[in-house]
Computed example of a mutant assay.
Amino acid sequence: MRPGGSVTAVFFDLDNTLVDHSGAERAASILFYEVISERTAASSPEEFAQLWSRVQDRHMDRYVAGEISFQQQRRERIFEVFETKSSDAEADALFGIYLGHYENSWRAYADVLPCLESLRVDHVTVITNGDAAQQRKKLRRTGLADRFAEVITSADFGCSKPDPRIFHSACERASVNPSDAIHIGDSLTVDYEGACAAGLRGVLLVREESAAPADPSITTVRSLHELPSLVDGAKK
């Protein structure tokens, strides 16, 4: 993280940074498999969970890129997993089963609240690629909604990370210069590189050691417990 002026704002990614999206997705897909196992070629819950994750990533990327709507990416996941073109109504009903399990599996990471309570900055904001209603619901259900001054979603703003405009908008709303803001997230390209390209100080959250980047110049933390001291050090 490059030197600069005093850090007065910290921006957080949401999924797999504040809330364990991957864990919720995996738990929900296994429960979903118990209901629909006879309708899929997957031979085990583990195989289905891996298939569901790949399909989810592919169609969410299409949604974030603006190619399809949020509702349509849900339907496309069902169509692909079941290898059939069912009606939209049937796809919505099937996805609703998964969605109920997914929402019930949402959990904030254990390091989130201690981190937020220890941060000494003026502004704490969420910047997330995703559907506005779902992302705000996720924060409410995990008890985090009141911890942030603002939640900026790609759906509301009209473009997604790593587009610099969404980072600049967060800075403008917080009345801070980009160089005085830190953005932390789990994606090297979307969060870290996107923030740095926009003039912010990027921090990459690497919860799994195997995912650590080879480049030592990339500012990384293994836990949000490390962030407050990193912010304090940047102020000196």
Rank of each mutant, 00 (worst) to 15 (best):
S187K: 14
R141E: 07
R74A: 07
Y109C: 12
K161Q: 01
I218P: 04
R147S: 04
M60D: 03
A42T: 10
S37L: 06
Y33S: 10
S169T: 11
G143V: 07
S43K: 14
T142W: 03
L200H: 01
E150A: 12
V124K: 07
D122K: 14
L144V: 03
C115Q: 12
S223W: 00
A49L: 06
F82G: 11
V206C: 13
F48V: 10
S86E: 11
F11M: 11
E47A: 14
G5E: 14
I78A: 06
V121I: 14
F32D: 06
R222N: 14
R222H: 15
K137C: 00
V121N: 08
T220P: 03
R141Q: 11
S160R: 01
S210A: 15
T219K: 12
F32S: 05
K161Y: 09
Q50I: 10
V10N: 04
P164F: 11
G143F: 06
A93H: 08
A9I: 03
F148S: 10
C159G: 00
S223E: 01
G4C: 06
A24P: 01
I30R: 12
Q50M: 10
R39G: 04
V112T: 06
D92H: 07
C196I: 01
L188W: 07
S154Y: 09
E47G: 12
K138Y: 01
S53F: 09
G5R: 13
D186V: 04
R54Q: 13
G185L: 05
A91R: 05
D20P: 07
A174L: 09
R207L: 06
R39S: 11
R120D: 15
D13K: 02
D191G: 06
N177I: 07
T153W: 02
Q134Y: 01
A197C: 00
